[in-house]
Design a protein around this nucleic acid. Structure first.
Length: 478
RNA sequence: CCGGGUGUAGCGCAGUUGGUAGCGUGCCUGAUUUGGGUUCAGGAGGCCCCGAGUUCGAAUCUCGGCACUCGGACCA
């Protein structure tokens, strides 16, 4: 087979994983670069993936009682500084507006890196009584963080996300909210994006600036590096006190409410690419694919073929499937490669031979399997095949995750395992920051999370040998 | 932010001691094309990343920016 004329050239992931990733981002027409470092243009096909993720999440947020709002993009310096840990965490990567027209502003304004301070300021105005709680808010927006190293989807100076912010009367209720939202992320990643996750707690070192607890869902990429794919934070009443949010409770006492926030960003699209993609390009799970089925007429000029293909498109569309027919004059081989690169989960071919025999050919993107589908059974078989692809992608990703988790008793062992296999290394840990830093220093790994599902691997910390408190996952992260 | 690489047509690349540009592919037009990237003919397309400097003359030499990319540091 002539391989010298590709639709677009994609570097093999075994040759250069980072280049492979970048190639998919641009060649599959997900993003384009803008004139400003770290600011990416999401092209229609890339944005459509985000819209599908957005729709799924938004439905879940609404189903659990949350309402969408829109907060300002700019934060006055004085407001940002009200919570000490928060400002220390974000100040190094803030971008500032200092001029209005040709006038210097009396106070510089930060382009929001996250909006906790804005929500708190607002709540301090509107929350007065226990009857005002809970506040269950979310916003879809972009935020700005002046990163040094930037990559499409994985780390941009501006990126799209949603940030949920809630306020509750009790700690129990706020903690339940934090876990509920983490579970929504986990189930969206696993069921819709076919990305298996590990749920857990961040260490103090890795938790969000200003949070008491940060919960995370961690995913494993094709190169066995970790990607934090969603986080949910419990703030206690620290922010409320810093921003003078107080309400009168049922006993007529003035008390501070408990706060949470949680976010998921377009970064998960990077995760999607690095979880399912292959050397032919993108591979998209059917649930979030902008185009779920591509219908290709073979020998389209022969009588009846184009009409038949159009009929198949109409029948699949009637089922609610996101389907498109490619009636361009490119050769069949070109179309195969093109739609594979774009990650369309299922290809349906229809040609004169098929028509004679009353069937069409379905080809799965995840494993290349070709399936003869009787035209009479189209409505039953195609949706089922899409679910098979969805499950197939999850199973493959789960196998990758499960086969790259290793237990270690010492730092040296952890380092050797990471160097040989990559992936997550699980050890016991005493809970000390010094040991976390030692693991970073000696083995090049950061803590990923203290998993909810604990195992007892031994009595002592892998780093210092003192009595261990918990099991923890380590890894190399994006 | 530190170090390496890159920047010439949409994309991938050439470019003669310094004399303002060419190839492949893609694109447009017309044919051709039955199952993995057809074949042919004609055509369009370039502030040579930006700014200064050296020079009669700079894509080419010098300096300074910017962007992309890889690695490290930093970082949700």
């Amino acid at each position: 087979m002539a391989k010298d004329k590709k639709v677009e050239q994609i570097t093999d992931m075994e040759v250069d994983f980072a280049q492979w990733f970048t190639d998919i981002c641009t060649k599959a027409e997900l993003v384009d670069y803008s004139g400003v470092k770290g600011m990416f243009i999401l092209r229609p096909y890339g944005y459509a993936i985000w819209e599908n993720i957005q729709r799924i999440l938004d439905d879940k947020f609404k189903a659990t009682g949350h309402e969408n709002v829109s907060m300002p993009m700019l934060i006055p310096e004085s407001l940002l500084q009200k919570e000490k840990d928060h400002v220390e965490g974000f100040a190094p990567e803030c971008a500032w507006v200092t001029m209005g027209g040709s006038e210097e502003l009396p106070e510089k304004l930060c382009v929001r890196p996250t909006s906790e301070t804005l929500f708190c300021e607002h709540w301090s105005h509107i929350v007065h009584s226990w009857r005002d709680l809970p506040c269950l808010y979310n916003q879809w927006c972009s935020v700005m963080r002046w990163e040094k190293t930037t990559r499409p989807f994985l780390r941009g100076r501006e990126f799209l996300w949603q940030e949920g912010h809630t306020l509750h009367a009790t700690e129990e209720e706020a903690r339940a909210e934090t876990l509920q939202m983490l579970e929504i992320y986990a189930e969206t990643l696993e069921k819709e994006m076919a990305m298996p996750v590990i749920r857990g707690n961040k260490t103090d070192k890795e938790k969000f600036a200003g949070a008491e607890n940060t919960y995370t869902v961690e995913c494993m990429m094709h190169d066995h590096k970790a990607l934090q794919s969603g986080t949910s934070h419990y703030f206690g009443d620290g922010f409320a006190k810093a921003f003078d949010i107080a309400y009168t409770d049922k006993e007529n006492k003035l008390v501070a409410p408990h706060e949470t926030s949680w976010g998921m960003s377009t970064r998960v699209i990077g995760g999607l690419i690095m979880t399912h993609g292959d050397n032919s390009g993108l591979v998209l799970p059917p649930h979030i694919a902008p185009i779920q089925v591509i219908v290709l007429p073979i020998a389209a000029h022969k009588p009846g073929v184009t009409e038949k293909a159009e009929e198949l498109v109409a029948r699949l569309k009637a089922l609610g499937i996101r389907v498109k027919g490619d009636f361009s004059d490119n050769s069949p081989g070109w179309k195969f490669a093109n739609w594979e690169m774009k990650g369309v989960p299922l290809r349906v071919e229809i040609g004169p031979k098929d028509m004679e025999q009353g069937h069409c050919m379905a080809v799965r993107r995840d494993n290349g399997e070709k399936i003869v589908v009787s035209l009479d059974e189209l409505e039953a078989r195609i949706p089922a095949l899409l679910e098979d692809v969805q499950q197939g992608l999850f199973d493959k990703a789960k196998a990758n995750l499960d086969s790259h988790i290793f237990a270690a008793q010492t730092i040296e062992e952890a380092k050797a395992l990471q160097e040989e296999h990559g992936g997550f290394i699980k050890t016991m840990w005493c809970g000390d920051l010094a040991c976390e830093e030692a693991m970073k220093e000696k083995a090049g790994m950061s803590s990923r999370c203290i998993p909810f599902e604990q195992e007892h691997l031994g009595e002592t910390c892998a780093c210092c040998g003192k009595p261990a408190k918990t099991m923890i996952y380590w890894g190399v992260a994006y």
